[in-house]
Design a protein around this nucleic acid. Structure first.
Lengths: 213, 213
DNA sequence: GAGATAGAGAACGCAACCGTTCCTTCGACT
DNA sequence: AGTCGAAGGAACGGTTGCGTTCTCTATCTC
């Protein structure tokens, strides 16, 4: 995620600023360092121009490398994006137990907000919006982000039931989804970052009233 | 919305099937009929390839017309999409009052589901996902779709308060948004169409429990 | 230090889309 | 019927991305 971003390359300089004679005395990355830079560039391009308009040339320029380095590793844009998702999506299996449901939920929601404000969040947003739901990436997104998060939410609530924090009959899919849905909705309509005060409102005015015994 | 779709042009035939000598005996649309066909093509392209990868040539081919007819009316892709949204988004100001909150809400939710399953819904989804939130289209989307729907929801709930259907202190922005957010979330994660049974669950397990006196 | 590996970058021919122009033919109006 | 504006296309030169291949050289390995 740090990856030798030597200049603030928001403007996609076509190729290293064109100094004809000068051999560009910059370290030559390879292996993981280079791949990380490419993944970063993919995320940046995805959230900037979307999947359809994303080009290999654009990614190469944003990563300050050549196309060949990309084509040597991935046969197509699709594969590149798939690998990027695989390598960049957070794992999210932190086994938190703060003692009560509200702070458990607050913690997982905070992680969600950070994730949504990150480049990976922007890329996910672009992919989810643009792609038909039969696409492979959407499946990956499901398996790696949505499903684990939903499982975690359910886990937290069931723990609350055992603790007496949560009404047993309140743990339904649609209730579990309500909090995340509101946060995602807010992200889509107002853009990042999502105000933590909004998260508090979601917790106190929607989620807690629904599950309180 | 009907617009002389003479063939099922899902496959974007580059230009009217290439019959060299034959002068293509097809009616020549003009005025509103042609514009409607173009708007349809824009929606189809938006939901298929997204905004970034949408091209004027693609739209012209999908509408079975020439690029000139488009460039004669709109100076840019942006203007074309903006006008498309203006002309195609539903107005949604049906002043319904069925006597109780639940069926009022069910009605507005049903309209939402239909809208989300339509080509316009696909286009909205693509735009919301792909575009940064400083974009003009997003503003249009806000003013023409999101804001009216939210106002309508609030209206319905306030009517419920007056009727004794709804707890007065339940009418908060985040509660009003909960239902629509869940429906949109479902659309984004599972794709259209949204199962009416899911809508029922949203109503009975989330919205009604939150507002019931 | 010598050799092998692979990154940076330029260039290739090819295809798509750009925005414009032109021409023919249709359709609407008088 | 005759006129006129515009639709349907095709073609223009220019730009951009494609995927590949080339050279050169930095960096890693032995």
């Amino acid at each position: 995620m740090q990856a030798a971003r030597l200049r603030s390359s928001t403007t996609l300089a076509t190729a290293a600023d064109k100094n004809p004679g000068v051999p560009l005395f910059r370290c030559r990355r390879r292996g993981v360092a280079l791949e990380t830079a490419i993944y970063d560039a993919v995320l940046q391009q995805l959230s900037t121009v979307g999947f359809g308009a994303m080009t290999i040339e654009g990614v190469a320029a944003a990563a300050r490398t050549g196309k060949a380095a990309i084509y040597r590793r991935w046969p197509s844009k699709e594969e590149l994006v798939a690998d990027t998702l695989d390598n960049v999506l957070p794992s999210l299996d932190l086994p938190l137990d703060t003692g009560n449901v509200r702070s458990d939920l607050a913690e997982i929601f905070t992680v969600m907000l950070e994730m949504m404000a990150s480049p990976a969040g922007g890329a996910m947003q672009a992919l989810m919006g643009e792609l038909g739901h039969d696409h492979d990436f959407i499946t990956t997104l499901h398996e790696r982000v949505l499903a684990p998060r939903k499982a975690l939410m359910t886990e937290i609530m069931l723990r609350g039931v055992a603790r007496g924090d949560v009404r047993a009959d309140a743990v339904k899919p649609v209730v579990v989804e309500a909090g995340p849905a509101l946060l995602v909705h807010r992200l889509l309509t107002f853009g990042p970052p999502v105000d933590p005060a909004y998260m508090e409102a979601v917790l106190d005015d929607v989620v807690m009233p629904l599950i309180r015994p």
